[in-house]
């Protein structure tokens, strides 16, 4: 967002030699805390998200579960996931989770993106797609450990939750937070949200949820959307929320290892060719009229010769 253009800490496809505008880098990190134990699955957050961001997704079909739409789309940036589970005692549990971008401190999408400035990370922790710079290659889809970005068929650009960067920039909380009727979603500084989470986790443990805990995965440097989970020891129960998310080693190999190796390959190849030419000289052909065949051996043995016919 233009309003936050002075506090960018990471910019896609931009190397570290050119520092980004950071005049306001004293800014506090923000976080959204989603307490799954308080969620009733009303989908008010989905509606608020669509309303604030002016998204009009197609009305879908019931696919046999409550998830609706059935998945994130370019025009649905958050979806409540409904997972049924029987615990060891045979007791049914309904696990709800509001899915959307986690706003990682080390964003895989941003690492993968080849288009300068198409993905920005702001000092407050928000990771935002700049749609007009997006080229629609889909690398962010491969880079994301949470399978969040979606590419629109309408305009071939990637979309996901912005954490309402436009609202946050003017001191408002994200639309989903504002709307949530049960108080399951909170927003504030990351430190405040961690404190709040700690309190909630204590309460949940006191009520017998021994596995309760905060989901702020260290593998991606922590996230700016965090969960309080009743089963924090098994995050994957909540619709395949990764137990230990991190940027894939394949993506790291591609972006961190192959790039310098490739650059060295170019330098070595070009320098080698140039050095060879300087050392050996052009490989020319003696075009003096063909003598008797017996002379061929010697002709071929002659070194560089400027009589040669040029290419």
């Amino acid at each position: 967002m233009g309003m936050q253009s002075q506090d960018i800490i990471r910019r896609s496809a931009t190397n570290g030699l050119t520092p980004l505008p950071q005049a306001r880098s004293h800014e506090q990190e923000v976080a959204k805390l989603i307490d799954v134990s308080l969620c009733t699955g009303c989908k008010g957050c989905q509606v608020a998200c669509s309303e604030w961001n002016d998204l009009r997704d197609e009305v879908g079909h019931n696919v046999g579960v409550y998830d609706n739409p059935a998945d994130l789309t370019p025009e649905t940036w958050t979806v409540i996931r409904f997972d049924e589970r029987e615990d060891e005692a045979g007791k049914l549990e309904w696990l709800l989770r509001k899915e959307g971008c986690m706003h990682c401190a080390e964003p895989g999408c941003l690492k993968a993106c080849p288009s300068p400035g198409a993905i920005l990370q702001f000092a407050n922790g928000i990771v935002d797609f700049q749609s007009e710079q997006c080229i629609g290659c889909g690398y962010c889809v491969a880079g994301c450990p949470f399978d969040i970005p979606r590419i629109s068929k309408k305009d071939n650009r990637a979309y996901k939750c912005t954490l309402c960067a436009d609202r946050v920039a003017v001191g408002q909380e994200p639309a989903c937070v504002k709307t949530c009727p049960t108080g399951a979603i909170s927003f504030g500084s990351k430190a405040e949200m961690k404190d709040l989470a700690a309190t909630r986790v204590e309460e949940l443990k006191g009520r017998g949820h021994n596995g309760a805990g905060l989901y702020d995965p260290a593998g991606v440097g922590g996230t700016h959307v965090m969960y309080v989970l009743t089963h924090a020891d098994q995050p994957s129960l909540y619709h395949r929320l990764p137990d230990d998310p991190h940027i894939s080693p394949v993506v790291r190999g591609w972006k961190e290892w192959l790039k310098p190796v490739g650059a060295l390959g170019f330098i070595a190849t070009l320098a080698g060719a140039f050095a060879h030419y300087m050392g050996v000289g052009a490989n020319t052909t003696d075009e003096t009229p063909p003598a008797e065949p017996e002379k061929e051996l010697e002709d071929a043995g002659q070194g560089p010769n400027d009589n040669g016919r040029d290419a």
């Binding site: 591609w254 490739g262 190849t269 060879h276």
Partner: peptide, 27 residues
Amino acid sequence: LLAHSVAGLALILLVIGHIYMGIWVRG
């Protein structure tokens, strides 16, 4: 994606060698 990048780099480097040989060997 990784395979595409590796193969692309390798091919471009091979082609640079090919171009150089064309320049080196006059004619």
